[in-house]
Design a protein around this nucleic acid. Structure first.
Lengths: 111, 111
DNA sequence: TCCATATTTCGATATTTATCGAAACATTGG
DNA sequence: CCAATGTTTCGATAAATATCGAAATATGGA
């Protein structure tokens, strides 16, 4: 993953409403969530939400598909994995920054 | 780690020169690096570099200490760990987002 | 066809961010 | 005390971003 791609992804997540939206998409899983439901959940006007969702898509962190009248957004987990990989490789001092601690057997579900 | 803190950190890293600077600090380790050396490395005017380094410090990702005439910046690895933990916990679908291939993916792009 | 629903695009505006030279500030050495 | 060095702060400006109502664009159903 190239620095420019990472920067776009980080910029997309570095905003209150987009981070919240992305978290909703992560919870929603591969099936995704319609734009209106996300806007309702976050209490944002449709046009503002559309603006932010478009940025997530443009950053490669979310996908977009139409289903009847709704447009369904879904998190792109591969892209997020790529970002995490880049940060681990380039922005962490060795393995000490790895989110999966050595004592933990590999799962870090809820904290 | 609170969303607001994470957002500030992500915003700090979501900029070409700051991401490059932070990577230099990560390589430099706890001893850190003087502002001038970072500016030289990145080919930026001192005032621009100072602006970006201040943002890294304000975001909590770097520390600042004076040593004689130089001001030494160093990466705050705990803060970075905190960011990684938040992303893993909240922005990844379970453990599937863990960068398992970080060791053998020979990707090493320059910033 | 006509209307309701779901979402995006447009337009205008306010805020934030990035840039960099010049000037100011702090520290060291002569 | 004065000059040199390393860095920050100031000022001005350009560019990007966030906001949201209104209008436009799809889709589905009566």
């Amino acid at each position: 993953m190239q620095p420019d791609t990472v920067i776009r992804a980080l910029a997309a997540l570095a905003q209150e409403h987009r981070l919240a939206a992305f978290r909703l998409l992560v919870v929603a899983g591969p099936e995704g969530m319609p734009a209106g439901a996300i806007a309702d959940e976050l209490g944002l006007p449709a046009s503002s939400m559309s603006f932010h969702l478009a940025q997530l898509v443009h950053a490669g962190l979310a996908t977009q598909r139409r289903q009847s009248r709704s447009i369904i957004y879904a998190a792109d987990f591969d892209a997020m994995r790529g970002v995490m990989g880049y940060l681990t490789d380039n922005c962490c001092g060795g393995a000490s920054c790895s989110p999966v601690d050595s004592e933990n057997s590999g799962e870090r579900s809820a904290a």
